[in-house]
Each structure stands twice: as structure tokens, then as C-alpha cells.
């Protein structure tokens, strides 16, 4: 393929990647920003969303779009409820101590992953695309559904921003993020806020999973890779900065696609990883981070 169309193709692929990544990272960033904890189980909530999407769409006959829409509503709800209850049962009692939370969320990671293995088995599970339309862009074909993924992600990101910036709930979150003790002194029910945030973070990851699962299959080990990437995105973007998270997701998603144009695939992965290291070495607090951590 000529370089021009190739770059266009790689950019489109990178955009899809970036869209999904920014959603996953957004969930992680929200939890980190407000609660100051690292949720290592975040990738498993993503996986849970994907597996549930497959499970739910299996009940629905007729148009695959109905199953998909149903999954888009139910899967994040279930993932969110599971996350909230694990916060309530476990993390709360650890008083959100950073180290203890890491090890506890590793525990939650194993439990969710293995429970899915026991319940749904180890196979990769497909979900049918809600609509199957291949755009023929002369040099190559591209699935119209992938544009839908990008579009949905943008809408979701925008609504999260709206909630954060314009609503009272957003105000409470921002207050908690800035200074949880003072927020508590002003009568904000910190414990409830934390549970909600943990649930919402997981639900956003599950939404990302439902969006991606018609393109990639659901599998009980699928949570690892997005967790790593989301981690990188959150750190590069600067901890707790939503704007930075989205910018970093676009940067990493796109660069991953475009670097792969010029190098052999594995070398491209090495270079993209090195790129992350260099960014962090030059700006240890991330591109948009200011405070010390």
C-alpha cells in the first residue's frame, strides 16, 4: 500500500484504539484522582464487561443490535455493582492504604478472573456487530462500526466532563479530590462517594469493553493488556487530570498505530514503549500533571 493511504489507515486504526483506551483510562484516572488508590483489578472489570456482553447477547434473538444495546446498559451496571460491593466489603476496611489496596486489588483481580473462568470457560467468545457495514475506502476496507466506537467514546467522554464540570455531583467529586478531609468536614459523605466513584470507574471500563467486543472477542485473560496501557496513559497524562488522560490516550493510541507503519511490528512495540519511558524521564509527573506524587 502507498504511504499516504497507509498512514490514513494507520491513523484510523489508531483512533479506534485511542477511543477505547481513553475510556478505560478515564475510569482508572477517576478512581485514582478521587480516591488516591491504584485499582489493579481495573482490567478485570473491563473483561467482565466484555464477557457479560457476550452472555447477555446470547439471550436475545433477532437483530444483534438489540442484544448489543441491552448489553451496553446491563453489563456496566453489573460491573459497577460488583466494584461497589468490593469497595464496601474490602477496600473501605483497608482505609484505602495505598500498599494494602494494591495487594487487595490484585486479589480481586484473581477472584474475578478465575470466577469468569469457572463460570464461562476459557474460550474466546464473539459478539455480533450491531450493524455490519464495510466502508470501501478505495485502498482498503474499513468497518463502519469502528467509527461508531469512536463516536460513542467521544460522547461518553464529553458527558463525563459535563458531569464533572457542571453538576453538583461533579463538584463533590472535585472537592473530595482536592482535600478529602475538608470535604468531609463540610458534610460530604466520603464513604458513599468513594463507593460510587469506584463503581463508576469500573462501569466506564465495562462500557469500553462492550463497545470493543464486537471487534475483539471476549476472553477471561483479556484484562491484562488494557490495564497496562491504561496505567501508562494515566501516568503520562498526569495523575488525576482528565484532560491529560484523554490527550495521552490519543497520543499513545495514535503513535502505536503510526509507528507500526515505519518499523517491523515487534520493533514498533519496543520503540513505542521506549517513547513512554522517555516522556516519563523528561516529565516525571506526566504531560499535564503538576503536583508531586
Amino acid at each position: 500500500m502507498d504511504l499516504g493511504p497507509y498512514l490514513l489507515f494507520a491513523s484510523l486504526e489508531g483512533l479506534v484504539h485511542a477511543a477505547v483506551l481513553s475510556l478505560i483510562a478515564l475510569g482508572l484516572s477517576l478512581v485514582f484522582g478521587v480516591m488516591r488508590i491504584v485499582n489493579v483489578a481495573h482490567g478485570e472489570f473491563f473483561m467482565l464487561g466484555a464477557i457479560l456482553a457476550w452472555w447477555i447477547s446470547g439471550f436475545v434473538f433477532g437483530s444483534p443490535a438489540i442484544g448489543f444495546l441491552l448489553a451496553l446498559i446491563i453489563a456496566p451496571l453489573i460491573a459497577g455493582v460488583i466494584a461497589m460491593s468490593s469497595d464496601w466489603l474490602i477496600l473501605k476496611h483497608l482505609k484505602y492504604d495505598p500498599e494494602a489496596t494494591i495487594i487487595a486489588t490484585i486479589g480481586i483481580l484473581y477472584i474475578i478472573q478465575q470466577a469468569v473462568l469457572m463460570t464461562f470457560g476459557p474460550d474466546a467468545r464473539p459478539v455480533e456487530q450491531p450493524f455490519n457495514y464495510r466502508l470501501d475506502l478505495y485502498w482498503f476496507g474499513f468497518s463502519a462500526y469502528k467509527f461508531f466506537v469512536v463516536f460513542s467514546a467521544i460522547i461518553l467522554l464529553f458527558s463525563v466532563w459535563l458531569v464533572m464540570a457542571k453538576t453538583k455531583f461533579g463538584l463533590i467529586l472535585r472537592a473530595t479530590q482536592l482535600d478529602s478531609e475538608t470535604a468531609q468536614a463540610f458534610g460530604i459523605p466520603i464513604s458513599t462517594v468513594y463507593s460510587l466513584v469506584f463503581g463508576v470507574g469500573a462501569a466506564i471500563a465495562a462500557v469500553a469493553a462492550v463497545l470493543i467486543v464486537p471487534i475483539q472477542q471476549a476472553h477471561y485473560l483479556m484484562g491484562g493488556e488494557p490495564l497496562l496501557l491504561a496505567f501508562i496513559v494515566v501516568i503520562i497524562g498526569g495523575l488525576g487530570s482528565l484532560r491529560g488522560t484523554v490527550a495521552a490516550a490519543v497520543l499513545i493510541g495514535m503513535s502505536d498505530g503510526i509507528i507500526s507503519v515505519f518499523f517491523s511490528p515487534n520493533l514498533a512495540k519496543i520503540i513505542a514503549t521506549l517513547f513512554v519511558v522517555i516522556v516519563l524521564l523528561i516529565k516525571p509527573n506526566g504531560l499535564f500533571g503538576s503536583e508531586k506524587t
Binding site: M1, G14, Q216, S260, P265, K269
Partner: peptide, 20 residues
């Protein structure tokens, strides 16, 4: 020869490397 990295979960971006 188009090798695909083992950690990859999406493949499209490698297909343009296939000569016309």
C-alpha cells in the same frame, strides 16, 4: 514476511504491509 507481536489483540494495522 509480516510478523505479528504476540501481545497484539488487533491486527488490521499490519495488513497494509502485505505487498499489492
Amino acid at each position: 514476511k509480516v510478523p505479528i507481536p504476540p501481545t497484539e489483540s488487533s491486527f488490521s494495522k499490519y495488513f497494509p504491509k502485505i505487498p499489492r
